[in-house]
């Protein structure tokens, strides 16, 4: 059924901190690694060892530079994965019922047994979150790691998305954005989390935390700003003269 649920009990999603992300691609590679054997497996690769390697990924890390006039330029590392939108038009355009949004937790998924590979959902996603698997002829996308977050075989602390667990700077946070008390909701409120392309009205669940103001001058730690040149005499002075010739 590709009509959207009128409301979802939970809104599970990610909060991504653009201030602390260092652009290491750990989330992207761990996503690839987990999902290669996960719900939407395989994550096909084409020509992986050739000159033009390509393949299906659910998470991609971009790097941008922001020029800000007389303030120093800012580097933004930007991980991009499905935002599990409230108003997911990738779902409503699907002619087959393969794409759907779950009413219990708001996760947007593809049933690859029903998908005809018409690609229309990937056209309807403003964020480029869906990638077509040309080998299997079906569409694939981030599952919010449903096979981890509900997985009773994992230790409770491991029941989190693979990308969240892999991040070395804890720039990715997972939780229920419908619950104002949750850690992710509070983080979003405290750091003024943003929707991406709010103009289009997709109402994404995932939020992005913009970089905090950065200090331009370094803090005073009591050290001299410049070092005095050192004039040696004696043997060291002679050595310095010989070597500087």
């Amino acid at each position: 059924m590709t009509s959207l649920p009128s409301h979802t009990n939970k809104k599970l999603g990610l909060v991504i901190d653009l201030d602390t992300c260092v652009g290491c691609h750990a989330c992207a590679t761990n996503c690839k690694s987990w999902n290669s054997g996960g719900h939407s497996a395989p994550l096909t690769d084409y020509d992986p060892y050739g000159p033009q390697p390509d393949g299906v990924w659910f998470n991609r890390v971009h790097s941008f530079e922001v020029k800000r006039g007389d303030r120093p330029n800012l580097t933004i590392n930007f991980p991009r994965s499905c935002l599990h939108c409230d108003n997911a038009e990738c779902v409503t355009v699907c002619p087959t019922g393969a794409s759907y949004k779950r009413s219990e937790d708001g996760i947007v998924l593809v049933n690859t047994d029903k998908c005809i590979g018409c690609k229309l959902c990937s056209w309807a996603c403003p964020y480029g979150a869906r990638e077509f698997d040309a080998d299997e002829g079906v569409m694939k996308k981030c599952t919010l790691c449903i096979d981890r977050i509900y997985n009773e075989n994992l230790d409770p602390e491991d029941r989190q998305p693979a990308c969240v667990l892999a991040c070395p700077t804890s720039a990715r946070h997972f939780g229920d954005l419908n619950d104002p008390e949750s850690k992710v909701s509070q983080l979003t409120a405290a750091r003024h989390g943003r929707d991406l392309m709010p103009e289009l009205g997709y109402k994404p669940t995932n939020k992005y935390l913009p970089p905090r103001a950065r200090k331009i001058d370094s803090a005073d730690i009591g050290a001299p700003e410049e070092l005095e040149p050192f004039e040696a005499d004696g043997f060291l002075g002679w050595l310095d003269k010989v070597l500087s010739k």
């Binding site: 971009h62 941008f64 922001v66 800000r68 800012l74």
Partner: peptide, 17 residues
């Protein structure tokens, strides 16, 4: 607006994924 950095300045690509 695509990367959630509004009105901060001119954004250009530093590196592709």
């Amino acid at each position: 607006s695509a990367i959630g950095i509004d009105a901060a300045g001119d954004v250009s690509v530093l590196e592709l994924p």
